[in-house]
């Protein structure tokens, strides 16, 4: 994977010697479906010896993005992008005799390719951008019951498509923009680290528990344009 990224970056840089390069960083808020993981928590609640409660349930969280684009024509720019998402959940119970805590911490890196079309070129620019990426997710499950604790890590990967609109304002070589879109994630099995044959699944249906990051994405970006 690392090798593939290196080759892509090399091609982009090599191409930069002939065109305009845009480097972009973003920060936004995303909502996450993660319906399988939420159902998993419900099942866990039923099996607990005490009546626990979900105190944190994969809430909306900031995400981070970076990208590098090459303006191929006046209308089209192609680029490489990457986003980082993280969220989590907690099942909690505590009384005088001790505490029970089951935490799920979910992170994801999504490198991908993006195509950006300029729809309006005035003081404000309007773009439509579509990003296709592969999400590499990591789920850390930790369980603490009184003095007992256990931790497991699962990894999954899945294909994502994120169409969005982008409105920008240029100041010299800097471009400030706001973005709105929706991310579609087909999700992937959560395989146990150290034993790839084992994966998370529902107890009754034996269906795999997938990590589905789908949801609305709102973000702000700042870009720097290099005239080569």
């Amino acid at each position: 994977m690392k090798k593939t990224i290196t080759i892509i970056v090399f091609i982009i840089f090599a191409y930069n010697t002939f065109a305009q390069i845009i480097i972009e960083a973003g920060y936004g808020m995303g909502s996450y479906s993660l319906n399988d993981l939420r159902d998993m928590n419900s099942e866990i609640l039923k099996t607990l010896p005490v009546q626990g409660k979900v105190t944190d349930d994969f809430p909306m969280q900031p995400f981070y993005g970076i990208g590098i684009f090459h303006q191929t024509t006046n209308v089209l720019s192609l680029g490489l992008t990457g986003t980082y998402n993280t969220t989590g959940s907690r099942i909690s119970y505590k009384d005088y005799s001790g505490e029970l805590k089951i935490d799920n911490i979910l992170t994801s890196w999504s490198p991908g390719l993006a195509a950006r079309f300029k729809l309006m070129d005035k003081k404000l620019n309007l773009y439509q951008e579509t990003r296709i990426s592969c999400a590499f997710s990591k789920l850390q499950m930790s369980e603490e019951i009184i003095s007992y604790s256990e931790e497991m890590t699962f990894k999954s990967s899945g294909l994502q498509i994120e169409p969005k609109f982008k409105l920008t304002y240029d100041i010299s070589n800097l471009e400030f923009g706001v973005n709105g879109g929706y991310l579609l994630d087909i999700g992937g099995k959560n395989k146990l680290v150290g034993d790839k044959k084992s994966f998370l699944q529902f107890k009754d249906s034996t269906d795999p528990i997938k990590t589905n990051w789908s949801g609305i994405r709102l973000s702000a970006t700042v870009s720097y344009l290099f005239d080569l």
Partner: peptide
């Protein structure tokens, strides 16, 4: 720029979500 980009990726990776909340029961 490539090095900056990688540094940024690693830095962001360290920012994992911290689940919160406590459900305390009176027994």
């Amino acid at each position: 720029p490539y090095l900056y980009l990688l540094s940024l990726i690693f830095m962001l990776s360290a920012c994992e979500y911290e689940p919160g909340g406590l459900y305390e029961v009176d027994v």
